[in-house]
């Protein structure tokens, strides 16, 4: 149940995509998102699909992982789809029954939005599939570091993210353990009314919070013992360096955005 969470899951590998500089990967992801939102025709989205497929094939991540990342957002897709279908009235009327009116414009928008959301999720999950959380936060720190001039705590935020990601599996394991222990004492979490079930969470959440605070304190102490004083003057074991392939990847990204702009011109929806 809790083990099905795929957010932030990382698949180690040695593909080109894996080896790209994480900062460039972040930049490319942002470019990809911009591209998807600029596209206002199916041809433009087609370019997005092509970009995604090429990236997935290069990364060597199995295609079924794409389906897995979409699974949790299916309700959102259905919800926005229904809203678009019923509330957009443009183009020809396809069906009219009492107060419900479905138009061709509505159908097109529904499909368009659904494809866009799916592409968005697949693309961003490819980023986490191919980049380890540690390098990702590293990249975020480096990208945000110019903001240090205006006293923006870039290092601290990156460190917080690293720690948070590091403790997700630990806390999941802890939750499992506490749940078993309370079940052994006769706690019942699976039956009863909603209120009863919510109440049954108290014996799990309180020990979980207590242990999270305890861990935080221990970690803070351990970091101080190793003379951690924030980012000032800290060097790193793995330096981020851009390689020719990174510039090449950015060039491809720019080319795709250009293609989307051109396609928008020539094939309106």
């Amino acid at each position: 149940m809790i083990k099905d969470i795929t957010i932030g899951q990382f698949f180690p590998g040695k593909s080109v995509i894996h080896r790209l500089d994480p900062r460039i990967k972040l930049l490319l992801t942002v470019m990809y998102i911009v591209m998807l939102f600029m596209a206002d025709s199916f041809a433009g989205l087609g370019a997005g699909i092509l970009f995604l497929l090429i990236s997935f094939l290069l990364s060597g991540i199995p295609m079924k992982m794409m389906a897995k990342s979409i699974k949790p957002i299916v309700p959102i897709i259905i919800f926005t789809g229904i809203l678009n279908l019923f509330f957009i009235s443009s183009g020809d009327v396809l069906l009219e029954w009492k107060f419900i009116k479905i138009t061709s414009g509505g159908v097109t928008t529904m499909v368009f939005m659904a494809v866009r959301i799916v592409l968005l999720i697949c693309g961003t999950s490819l980023l986490t599939y191919t980049t380890s959380p540690i390098t990702l936060t590293d990249a975020i720190e480096r990208i945000l570091s110019p903001l240090k001039v205006i006293k923006f705590p870039a290092h601290e935020i990156a460190m917080m993210m690293t720690i948070a990601l590091r403790f997700i599996p630990t806390l999941i394991e802890e939750t499992d353990k506490i749940m078993s222990a309370q079940k052994a004492r006769g706690a019942d979490m699976e039956t009863g009314s909603l209120i009863k079930r919510a109440k049954a969470l108290i014996p799990i959440l309180i020990p979980l919070f207590v242990s999270a605070f305890r861990r935080a304190e221990e970690l803070a102490l351990a970091m101080e013992c190793r003379c951690y004083r924030g980012g000032e003057g800290r060097t790193r074991l793995k330096q981020l360096r851009t390689a020719p392939r990174d510039y090449f990847a950015v060039a491809i990204g720019v080319a795709f955005i250009a293609a989307v702009i051109v396609l928008n011109r020539f094939s309106p929806i």
Binding site: K177, I178, S180, R185, G186, A187, I202, P207, S211
Partner: peptide
């Protein structure tokens, strides 16, 4: 009755009395 490893991490009630009562009450 199963007492897990480090069972003190499962305590959650306001008082010792209430915590011991959890099992019997269930």
């Amino acid at each position: 009755g199963l007492v897990f490893q480090y069972p003190e991490y499962q305590l959650f009630e306001e008082t010792v009395y209430k915590d011991i009562a959890f099992g019997p009450k269930n």
